[in-house]
């Protein structure tokens, strides 16, 4: 009989290098054409305002952007999460129009963002 795989168990604490955020941009006058690159540029400008040039250089990825809902999936290193979150919270205008970033989900696991049980609508 072939050998069965030996049991093995690993416990990883804080082993993920990244955090993932689902972020929505809300504009005062409703939706309009915003491209993924403009979305990222706006976030970088927020980082520059709050943390200066060093902040603007923080690496993060916009994994996906949906222009119809202005919602993006962002990947950021653990050490930059608080800085990015605080910077985008303080962004108040986009091209002379009032705006706000709403962080809808945050997780150290990208797969956790593929569903949101708080959005389970049954009606």
């Amino acid at each position: 009989m072939e050998d069965l795989a030996a049991f093995e168990r690993l416990v990883c604490k804080n082993a993920s290098d990244f955090h993932y955020m689902k972020i929505c941009l809300v504009l005062e006058k409703g939706r309009r054409n915003v491209e993924a690159a403009q979305f990222k540029q706006l976030m970088i400008s927020g980082l520059r305002q709050l943390y200066g040039e060093v902040g603007a250089a923080l690496p993060f990825d916009v994994l996906k952007f949906d222009p119809s809902t202005l919602t993006g999936m962002v990947r950021v290193c653990n050490s930059s999460l608080v800085k990015l979150w605080s910077a985008i919270t303080l962004i108040g205008s986009y091209q002379n129009e009032l705006c706000a970033f709403r962080v809808t989900q945050v997780s150290p696991f990208l797969i956790a963002l593929s569903g949101n049980s708080r959005k389970l609508e049954l009606d």
Partner: peptide
Amino acid sequence: MSPELERCSRNLLICEKSNFRDERA
């Protein structure tokens, strides 16, 4: 910048490897 800003709350990931036919699984 304050090191406080670089901290994250903890998360856990348990990885297990075994075989479905193993009685102890």
